[in-house]
């Protein structure tokens, strides 16, 4: 399997004025194409920092992250934005929809950034909203939708530019169990259809839905748990 995202000796230090916080410490990890990987760890363990690093939101302080074999540490803001826009679809815990835009407009937004025509944007956005079961909610604003529906709009938005990777940060964290389950099913379905999925969660039960769980603590990977074969391999 080809690695779609790869971190080599990655460290991340946050400069908090007088103190420096080492959020990631010499991380090595590979995410293969089509894989469903969960990143788990207690709060403050650095799991979100790792996710941000692997999804080109942050540059490493040391080491290198490769997305589709392209090193990101030397890229400028715009190059990173383009990588994120075209290669990665984001799903956030708090949905992060833009409140004054309709569902359709929210879904169209990343396609606008990627330079698609209005026609293409509309077609794809409607299709994506239908795929997540919200074909009849295109003109609703986020505050007119339930939490689960909002997260589905966010998923539709993540799919607009047909990204290779879906990055989900606690995607069910703000949802009731029923809606959460629906979201997880959609994510699993996406993975079955070939999308690489990278998900952060602190709930074991949700992590178990992935093929592999990367356990992180104090900025270090402490375990690489492969679920599919039932093997537990120490990092």
């Amino acid at each position: 399997m080809k690695a779609i995202v790869r971190a080599e000796n990655v460290s991340k230090v946050f400069d908090m004025g007088k103190v420096q916080v080492k959020a990631l410490d010499n991380i090595n990890v590979e995410i293969d194409e089509g894989e469903f990987v969960a990143i788990m760890g207690p709060s403050g363990s650095g799991k979100t920092t790792l996710l941000n690093m692997l999804s080109a939101l942050l540059r490493p302080s040391a080491g290198e992250v490769f997305v589709n074999n392209k090193p990101i540490s030397k890229m400028d803001d715009d190059e990173l934005a383009i990588i994120r826009g075209k290669t990665i679809g984001f799903i956030f815990q708090t949905f992060n929809l833009i409140p004054r835009m309709t569902a359709l407009e929210n879904v169209m937004l990343p396609m606008w950034f990627a330079g698609l025509s209005v026609k293409q944007r509309e077609e794809r956005a409607k299709e994506a909203l239908e795929d997540v079961g919200l074909g009849d909610r295109v003109d609703h604003k986020p505050n007119e939708l339930s939490g689960g529906q909002r997260q589905r709009v966010a998923i539709a938005r993540a799919l607009g530019n047909k990204p290779d990777i879906i990055v989900a940060d606690e995607p069910t964290g703000n949802l009731d169990s029923k809606s959460g389950e629906q979201i997880l099913q959609i994510i699993e379905e996406l993975n079955k259809n070939g999308k690489t999925v990278l998900m952060v969660t602190h709930e074991r039960e949700i992590g178990l839905r992935a093929e592999r769980i990367v356990h992180i603590k104090d900025g270090k990977i402490i375990e690489n748990e492969i679920r599919k074969t039932g093997r537990r391999s120490p990092k």
């Binding site: 939101l57 803001d77 715009d78 934005a81 383009i82 994120r84 826009g85 075209k86 984001f90 992060n96 929809l97 833009i98 937004l109 990343p110 950034f113 990627a114 938005r157 993540a158 530019n161």
Partner: peptide
């Protein structure tokens, strides 16, 4: 600010 963050995360360049 948050909205700007969202837009940048989903692919908005500085110019956008």
């Amino acid at each position: 600010t948050r909205e700007i963050g969202i837009m940048k995360a989903i692919g908005a360049t500085n110019k956008h």
